[in-house]
Design a protein around this nucleic acid. Structure first.
Lengths: 136, 136
DNA sequence: GCTTGACCCTGTAGTTGCTACAGGGTGTAG
DNA sequence: CTACACCCTGTAGCAACTACAGGGTCAAGC
């Protein structure tokens, strides 16, 4: 399999595949006589794993750990579970941060009366606190 | 006001203040005889604006636009409203992406039976599709 | 047999929004 | 007078790619 085929089979960009090789996430494949990378099924499996973990939002560092762990089939899967749980907690924190942000941004936008910038509540809200206090 | 005072007044790091100056977001202030930056109230107001917009998740590029718009007090605040709405839509998209992620990760973690990596459902889920199909 | 175009190669620089040095100078308190 | 906190510039680093520049290879069509 050439790099373009591997890339399209995993919905990855060619440059990204090379990048994963450079940072040691994907093993360097054999080369053809023309110095083209020649991938096998094991590379496809590995890259699929990486992409799927990335799609789930794992960092490359977490993916690296998961790959290492997954290579040791006899090991307890506690560590795997732990990485996933830490990541889940992270996602939950991000969601609640964004939800708070949305609420505030909603409020800010809702205050817009479609006038001029001079009395735009959005701009006003963004200004320093004492400027806001003086208006009230 | 010296840079450290401005920084602590706006909960910003000194390096970040210098960075904002470098990228043209904050005007270069006057200098003391010792070449120290000497900030005035207008800088404090500007930096407060920037920080607050950043806290609301606006990109630096959006902040730059908002600052430009806010300088033209006579202008209609439509453009301001539009930037904020685009940003809100962006946040909402992120929230729903993360919520979908959480659901899937929840499912993956829930399938963990605390055995060995060899039959870890998390690792299995991350593997290539045909590997999963062959198990079923 | 020769050109066109799609693919491949390496290596480097750019993206966002900072943060962290290195290697200096300044100002003030004890 | 000396320690220490602060200031200066400039550069390099982080994540996770992405986008060139400047080449080589290969198959199809004329």
């Amino acid at each position: 399999m050439k790099i373009g085929e591997l890339a399209s089979a995993t919905a990855t960009k060619v440059e990204t595949v090379r990048y994963y090789e450079k940072i040691g996430l994907l093993a360097p494949p054999a080369r053809t006589s023309a110095n083209y990378r020649a991938y096998g099924k094991e590379h496809l499996a590995r890259l699929s794993f990486i992409r799927r973990a990335r799609d789930l939002g794992f960092t490359l560092e977490a993916v690296r750990e998961l790959l290492t762990l997954s290579d040791d089939k006899a090991r307890s899967c506690e560590a795997v579970d732990s990485i996933a749980r830490v990541h889940l907690a992270d996602i939950e924190r991000k969601i609640s941060d964004l939800a708070a942000l949305r609420t505030e941004l909603d409020r800010v936008i809702g205050s817009c009366r479609r006038g001029t910038v001079g009395d735009c509540k959005i701009i006003e809200t963004l200004g320093p606190k004492d400027a806001r206090a003086s208006v009230i």
